[in-house]
Design a protein around this nucleic acid. Sequence first.
DNA 1: GCTAGTTATAGTCAAACTGACTAGAACTAA
DNA 2: TTAGTTCTAGTCAGTTTGACTATAACTAGC
Lengths: 236, 236
Amino acid sequence: MYTSSANVAERQSAPPSLAISTVIFALRPSAKSGRPTLWIPLVRRIREPFKGLWALPGGPLTHAESLQDAASRNLRETTGLAPKYLEQLYAFGGLHRSPTQRVVSIVYWALVQPTEAALADESENVKWFRADRLGDLAFDHNAIVDYALWRLRNKLAYGSVAYHLLGEYFTLAQVREVYEAVLDRELDPANFRRQLKSTPEIEETGEYLQGGKHRPPRLYRFTGRPGLDPDNRSTP
Amino acid sequence: MYTSSANVAERQSAPPSLAISTVIFALRPSAKSGRPTLWIPLVRRIREPFKGLWALPGGPLTHAESLQDAASRNLRETTGLAPKYLEQLYAFGGLHRSPTQRVVSIVYWALVQPTEAALADESENVKWFRADRLGDLAFDHNAIVDYALWRLRNKLAYGSVAYHLLGEYFTLAQVREVYEAVLDRELDPANFRRQLKSTPEIEETGEYLQGGKHRPPRLYRFTGRPGLDPDNRSTP
DNA sequence: GCTAGTTATAGTCAAACTGACTAGAACTAA
DNA sequence: TTAGTTCTAGTCAGTTTGACTATAACTAGC
């Protein structure tokens, strides 16, 4: 859909504005099966365009902060979250992303641990949704979430990203559940644990998870470092 | 190094400007060994800041073009190149990237085939450099090139990126030379060819490369698609 | 307290893959 | 014709992967 030529001229006179948004992932137990599933917090638009629709948390970039700091601050202000894992996703700059003006959005993606996700603000205008049941979002945010999901699945397969969706201590079955939730397929428990046990970044603790219905599983700890972003590279 | 507080105040009043830059890779035969090595075209800064230093080709984002189009156009204008492979690298937005103003740079990276790279403009203010011998560049461009190199090596290992540095027809030994140049280590010819022959995206042609000193190698063709960027996703 | 049910955990086995290596084929240069 | 080089196919042992079996350790219900 195209706007009138008057609007186009108007749009071209203003500088393209720069916004920061974030796709936040957390695990929550599914209502049905009780298994963990991926959830995303969204905020309701309280003004045009797309007033009333749900959108990714975001806001403008202020001058005294880096891109990552802006994402962090905005997350805290809108959702109350302070994720341990925060990484740049992509810069979206299509011409018609917003009907009223040209906006370039630098989008981050974040992973929060379940304990923190439970504390997150939830209100009339901030709600969590299952990542696979979002409905129609404002702007191009459906496409952005799709891409973020693709990146998450990709990083999961190679990288060391699953542990940022879990607490400090976890069982190998919990890690497997994360993989199964994100990749949406079942994995053989025995083979999966063999692979994890061969990675040096996963450390066996002496503890066991008590209180379950069956044999108590051993608790593990992740000792690796997150990633290799330009923003995170020099961090020792 | 910090600027004076007056400059800081001045900087904060203006909106952060948005620029597009590109890291362009092409293979050229090394002067010494004759083997292909990675080269990058740079442009000389003709104004402050960093006047006289070499920098990545880039420029401002205009209103009528998407980010990728802006990168494309800028490439053509500054270097005369029209790469077949162009992908977003990262958005750099640190506070002190430029001493005079706050600049957010959305950086792309590109691969050009040797035939096209040979046609590229070269002048007093546009020159090609070996990727491993760049010297000190303007702004944070050394760090940007480092990251682009890291991405290139990464994509090479998994993806189907090597063929975009070669012409339409190539020998398996040429592909191996690309890998050796980018990864900077020798690979076993027999094992390497076994792997390539098992990938369905590489098609055997009936042709052979004639004119070499030894047994003429068979020519192959790449039939796969580039990538999975948001910008390239829907492209069939 | 015993038993059935369930998860945790270790191990087996064949197929696939990997790295190091051998060897013949096919060309050029001398 | 021969020596030298690259292209190409193949062997072999070590490693990894996927499917599967078996035992250990707990809870819940009787």
